[in-house]
Write a protein that binds this DNA or RNA. Structure first.
Ligand SMILES: [Mn+2]
Ligand SMILES: [Mn+2]
Ligand SMILES: [Zn+2]
Ligand SMILES: [Zn+2]
Lengths: 136, 136
DNA sequence: CCCAAGAGTGAGAATGGTTGTCGTTCTAGC
DNA sequence: GCTAGAACGACAACCATTCTCACTCTTGGG
């Protein structure tokens, strides 16, 4: 196997993600490396993130504004996402429980799962109020 | 309520989505309208899709290549998505069953759900083979 | 009818996150 | 040391989406 032991550059990315409060975008990671005098090309950050993803160490999701945010695989978080304003708040619920239940080999058909995304899209309470306000 | 009755322009978008085999991107919808001599500005397609989404008639998800694909809300489909090549194949499994089970008001806290996304990311069988091939 | 106000529209420019390019640098192995 | 190949970084290119703004359509009062 080639990519099971990430190189030091990628270890640093993983460390930053684990230290971070929430999810970080590639550009935020790039900035944090810069702040720590560990300048790195943005392309390298993207390359490292892709490898970490394929190694099963990092997961990601795409925000509605187009940017991708990354987090350690072990942090199993999901969100309520507003289709109006794009804000997202934590959703303390995972459809797979802790175990990867329900994912029997029959369904996967040779596919090797690494991580999952589960998000509920709708209207946040603030955007619902605005909507009502326009009517009255 | 203002937006519960979509305008004809948006009805046409919804119709195209319902007729389509799979999910369609905004640009594909724009093209189909053009093909049907119903020229429409691309901006209008995007505007209509956003309204249909907020009206609870259309759902969407972001592909790894950056484009967003749309489908009628009633079509409840999920996917296995390869982090290497970006391909996605159907996953005949929904974590919410048919009912919106598990989504009690306590968790939602005033958030009004419209649709959900659930995707499993990993390596498709083809990309696993390539990986092995490089080792040998 | 006529007109004005507001909503809706469309063509094209602007945006911006991500990916590609390619010359340079680093790392092993000899 | 020296060389082949991998890794890297600065910058250009890409492209889906959003923004802009002038134009058109609708509608209701005069
Ligand atoms: Mn989960
Ligand atoms: Mn579902
Ligand atoms: Zn909102
Ligand atoms: Zn693949």
């Amino acid at each position: 196997m080639a990519s099971t032991i990430p190189l030091p550059r990628q270890q640093r990315l993983l460390q930053l993600l684990r230290l971070a409060e929430g999810e970080l975008s590639a550009q935020e990671l790039h900035q944090r490396l810069r702040d720590a005098q560990q300048g790195t090309g943005l392309a390298t950050v993207y390359r490292g993130l892709k490898l970490l993803q394929q190694a099963g160490l990092v997961r990601c999701r795409k925000l509605s504004n187009g940017e991708t945010v990354y987090a350690p695989l072990e942090r199993d978080e999901h969100h309520l996402i507003c289709v109006q304003c794009g804000s997202s708040q934590p959703l303390p619920l995972c459809p797979l429980g802790t175990s990867s239940l329900g994912l029997n080999a029959v369904l996967l058909q040779g596919f090797r799962p690494l991580f999952h995304t589960f998000e509920i899209h709708g209207l946040c309470s603030r955007c619902q109020q605005v909507e009502v306000g326009l009517d009255g």
